Simulated scan of single mutants.
Amino acid sequence: MRKNEPKQLTDVNAADRYFVTSLEKGLDVLTCFGRQHNRLTLSEVARLTGMSPASARRSLLTLHQLGYLDSDSKRFWVQPRALLVAHAYLSSRPMPSLAQPLLDALSERTRESASLGQLLDDDAIIVARSTARRSLSTGLGIGSRLPAYCSALGRVLLAGMSAQDALARVRGMRRVALTPQTIHSVAQVVELVDRCREDGFSTNDGELEIGVRSMAVPVRDGTGQVVAAISIAVRVERMGMGEFRDAFLPMLNRARETLEARLFPA
């Protein structure tokens, strides 16, 4: 190695030496806020992040001083500056911007809401979305997270893994019944993931929200690897599951094919 040449991070130990734990904690604090946790106390942040109150306090006060959070001295909430973090992703990655007009067109044709999601930890996170006038009560938007084990988006993304890796991921998830229709046992979830791998799409019938059905298909890169999923949702009173599949699966697949061609041109 030449003098003053930066050492490459070639192993785990080298990477660990450059890991900034305080930055990790700050990001954990910033991302623990959400629709259900929009104003949080110090003790609530500590509980949600698994930090000690002292660590949580340092992160909260730093983010407050930097303008990412505001506070009334008891509770904290997110400031518009936090949007800069999301904007950095949305503006620098091609997938959301290329997907958005396709989702808009799909939503316009079907008069339903369409989403693009990617796997993040044990969830499918929405990175692009178009909402129809028939909006669903879940209030999903960009950045919303859906449990991978019981969402159509999540099961498609799990099906992109090998059967062994998907089984291990499902076993390690916290799986609860969000509605009386939620499928959450390891065996049943894995069976649905395997079926999705064979069929090329996945469905969900009232497992996230009673009265809402959804369907998703995978988006693959040039090597065939699943990198995202496109979904569409409909209320049960509009159409049955069979009609839903027959009417909207071809549209989903056309949107997927177009996005794949734009993202990964031959």
Rank of each mutant, 00 (worst) to 15 (best):
58 R>V: 12
73 S>W: 14
138 T>F: 10
63 L>T: 08
81 R>T: 14
266 A>M: 14
253 N>G: 05
216 A>C: 08
22 S>V: 11
88 A>T: 04
2 R>A: 15
31 T>Q: 08
146 L>R: 09
265 P>W: 04
238 R>H: 11
126 I>G: 11
262 R>L: 14
179 T>M: 12
138 T>V: 14
172 G>V: 07
217 V>G: 11
109 R>S: 09
161 M>N: 07
139 G>M: 13
136 L>D: 15
252 L>E: 02
14 A>N: 10
95 M>A: 09
184 H>S: 15
168 A>I: 01
44 E>Q: 15
201 F>W: 04
15 A>L: 02
65 Q>E: 13
124 A>M: 03
19 F>T: 15
49 T>D: 04
81 R>L: 15
230 I>N: 01
227 V>F: 14
18 Y>T: 03
253 N>T: 07
92 S>M: 12
67 G>P: 12
228 A>G: 10
51 M>R: 09
195 R>Y: 05
157 L>F: 03
129 R>P: 00
56 A>D: 07
213 R>G: 03
113 S>G: 11
134 R>G: 12
123 D>A: 01
215 M>T: 13
28 D>Y: 02
218 P>L: 06
36 Q>R: 15
228 A>M: 10
132 A>H: 02
5 E>T: 14
40 L>Y: 03
133 R>L: 12
98 L>Q: 10
108 E>I: 00
247 A>C: 14
234 V>F: 00
38 N>R: 11
39 R>N: 06
9 L>C: 02
216 A>I: 04
71 S>V: 04
171 R>L: 00
184 H>K: 05
57 R>M: 13
37 H>V: 06
33 F>M: 03
25 K>H: 11
185 S>V: 02
97 S>H: 09
253 N>V: 05
141 G>I: 05
198 E>S: 09
219 V>C: 13
91 S>D: 12
256 R>K: 08
162 S>R: 12
200 G>R: 07
184 H>Q: 09
243 E>A: 10
7 K>L: 15
255 A>H: 01
165 D>H: 04
196 C>R: 04
241 M>E: 06
183 I>W: 13
99 A>Y: 00
20 V>Q: 08
68 Y>D: 08
68 Y>Q: 14
180 P>T: 06
26 G>P: 04
155 R>L: 00
231 S>H: 07
169 R>W: 04
111 R>F: 02
97 S>C: 04
24 E>V: 05
72 D>G: 15
15 A>V: 07
32 C>E: 01
185 S>M: 08
208 L>V: 11
28 D>R: 10
214 S>H: 13
29 V>K: 13
159 A>E: 05
253 N>Y: 00
127 V>Q: 12
209 E>N: 01
149 Y>K: 05
236 V>R: 06
12 V>R: 13
186 V>K: 01
28 D>W: 01
131 T>K: 06
250 P>S: 10
203 T>K: 00
239 M>L: 13
90 L>M: 03
119 L>T: 01
247 A>H: 04
23 L>N: 07
262 R>M: 05
105 A>M: 05
205 D>A: 14
129 R>N: 01
21 T>P: 04
195 R>V: 00
50 G>M: 03
253 N>K: 15
201 F>T: 00
228 A>R: 07
78 V>N: 07
44 E>I: 09
73 S>Q: 14
75 R>K: 12
142 I>A: 11
